[in-house]
Design a protein around this nucleic acid. Structure first.
Length: 436
RNA sequence: GUAGGUAUAGCUCAGUUGGUUAGAGCGCUAGUUUGUGGCACUAGAGGCCGUCGGUUCAAUUCCGACUAUCUACCCCA
């Protein structure tokens, strides 16, 4: 009978969820979206496929290697690898039709042809917000972005997290002042500080042919800690002849002032001079968020300020600031760490079980319940009660309503709480209240 | 791109020092009678032991190649 069965499988690095997990995932996604909208960010959706010339306009060799690129007819196409480049294109293309500052959020899948590994995906969701200015963009936006991150993680159910901030001008200015040529390389090494420790960092830096006394200065700089005022004071006291450094310190001070005005509690953010962010289009404030109870997860949200977002697509000056949550990875890690757990495998809150001849009545009841915004499902197939309750049980449906002769005559429905196992006769109008 | 690990039931994995009918747990299906799930018991379905080749009287087991997959590095969300 069976022939030519193709083994069902998907490509590695692509996440696909079972029902209970998908509901859990969507719940996180909804919370993020609602928070973004609460701050007035405008939804945006752009094509997953862009012309390759657009995506590659600015990229270095690394992104080019990771990009899914293909020919279709005469067109050279690519799957987007982030949401920022499409945003740049979009803003440049529709510049005349948009109102600035342009605040948009974008939740969508992006693609990177990397070698998959734990928590690393080739297709994943990014949840971005960005604020794009025309010509100028006040630094207060950088503080607001941080407050949006704060609200978002609260909405996701976290209290104990730290949004670390730093400023690229400080880093660039400081390292320039030290005469370091490969600033990017140094930043990349320092970015791993949390992961591999001070000694390993020193070793890697010396392998980069950086002089010992310079390494010491770098380590001293990175080791600057304390609360934000301590760090600011220390930075202000550093006698650097780099104008960029001074400007960065000033910006950082300003951002911190605004953050307080946004009402972000000081335990949820900190200045951290060791964070760097790999991407080199950042020009000012940079962000990185960690869950303090689960440091091994690493950064769950990151971003920063960039001054020349769309320079490849327009002569307009479009400075911006934005962040991104890698939701696929975040979900995967929260799940693996047991921080979040699926309960139901269906949105259904009430399963109606009609006995012989009760189907039309059951359908009416279902319709009424749905009118009260109660997700309701009628068991439509033949089967013993045992099987129908089993169905509710397996899907984690919290309530069942049995409708038979008796219920139809009295108008009182038999409602069973699947968790406690208790059962009572209820009037249809009181069901909503009973479910609380 | 570099380096390791793994490949046996739908899933997680045992196992055969090379020998006839390949196992468990979970899951699945059915039953333990008639308007009640979870628990328990009973029964059942489900495997060319990743593919190709080598050694051997005999390979799921040993060897090799290939493929797939996982983990780490690089880089990132």
């Amino acid at each position: 009978m069976s022939k030519n069965i193709t083994t069902p499988s998907i490509l590695p690095g692509f996440m696909e969820l079972l029902p209970a997990d998908q509901l859990l995932f969507n719940d996180l996604l909804d919370k993020i979206r609602k928070t973004y909208e609460k701050f007035g960010f405008i939804p945006l959706d752009t094509p997953m496929i862009e012309k390759s010339e657009i995506l590659l306009a600015k990229s270095g060799g690394d992104t080019e290697k990771q990009i899914y690129r293909f020919q279709k007819g005469d067109n050279d196409l690519s799957l987007r690898f982030d949401l920022t480049v499409p945003l740049a294109r979009y803003v440049a293309q529709h510049f005349g039709e948009l109102t600035f500052p342009f605040r948009r959020y974008h939740i969508g899948k992006v693609f990177r042809g990397e070698r998959p590994q734990r928590g690393r995906f080739r297709e994943f969701y990014q949840c971005d917000i960005d604020i794009i200015g025309s010509e100028t963009l006040s630094i207060i936006n950088e503080a607001e972005i941080l407050s949006v991150i704060h609200e978002t993680f609260l909405a996701l159910g976290f209290q104990n997290f730290t949004i670390r901030i730093n400023n690229r001008k400080i880093l660039n200015g400081f390292y320039e002042g030290l005469g370091i040529v490969d600033k990017g390389g140094v930043l990349r090494v320092l970015d791993k500080l949390d992961k591999i420790g001070v000694d390993a960092i020193k070793k890697e830096l010396s392998e980069m042919a950086i002089a010992c006394d310079v390494i010491d200065k770098i380590m001293d700089f990175v080791a600057i800690t304390g609360d934000k005022q301590d760090i600011l004071n220390t930075l202000l006291a550093i006698d650097s002849d780099s104008e960029m450094f001074k400007l960065g310190v000033q910006e950082l001070q300003e951002v911190c002032g605004y953050i307080d005005a946004f009402g972000v509690p000081s335990e949820n953010y900190a200045i951290d001079l060791s964070i760097a962010r790999g991407l080199d289009y950042y020009t000012g404030t940079i962000y990185e968020t960690v869950l303090n109870d689960y440091p091994s997860i690493g950064s769950v949200c990151s971003g920063g300020r960039y001054d020349a977002l769309a320079e490849s697509y327009t002569k307009q000056k479009l400075p911006g600031v934005g962040i991104s949550i890698g939701l696929t990875r975040l979900f995967y890690q929260l799940k693996e760490a047991g921080i979040i757990k699926a309960s139901k495998a269906t949105p259904t809150d009430i399963l109606i079980i009609p006995m012989q001849g009760a189907m039309p009545y059951a359908l009416q009841v279902a319709s009424k319940l749905r009118g009260q915004d109660i997700p309701t499902e009628v068991y439509l197939n033949e089967g013993k009660l045992k099987k129908q309750f089993g169905y509710a049980d397996k899907l984690g449906i919290p309530y069942c309503i049995v409708i038979g002769e008796e219920e139809m005559q009295t108008g009182l429905l038999t409602m069973k709480n699947m968790q406690t196992g208790t059962q009572e006769k209820v009037n249809i109008d009181s069901i909503g209240a009973l479910m609380k």
